[in-house]
């Protein structure tokens, strides 16, 4: 199962998902306000995931 690191919450989750889109759906993440990073590279929703992948999810909201 891919490992999903939610940066803001400081939480790591392992979920069954074959694409990033499935990760967003299962974790109820709004894709319009996050960046997803695999091996220091940005990936998009349709990216296929492998069981050993590690994905960092970072909210893009900053400032105040």
């Amino acid at each position: 199962m891919p490992k999903i690191i939610l940066e803001k919450e400081g939480v790591i989750k392992q979920i069954v998902a074959s694409t990033l889109k499935e990760v967003y759906q299962k974790l109820k993440i709004n894709p319009t306000i996050v960046l997803a990073i695999k091996n220091n590279e940005l990936i998009i929703e349709s990216t296929k995931l492998k069981p050993k992948d590690e994905i960092k999810i970072i909210p893009v909201i900053s400032g105040g």
Binding site: T32, L35, I37, I58, V60, I61
Partner: peptide, 9 residues
């Protein structure tokens, strides 16, 4: 905001 964050990253 996502486009700016992507550019910054």
């Amino acid at each position: 905001e996502k486009e700016v964050a992507t550019y910054a990253y």
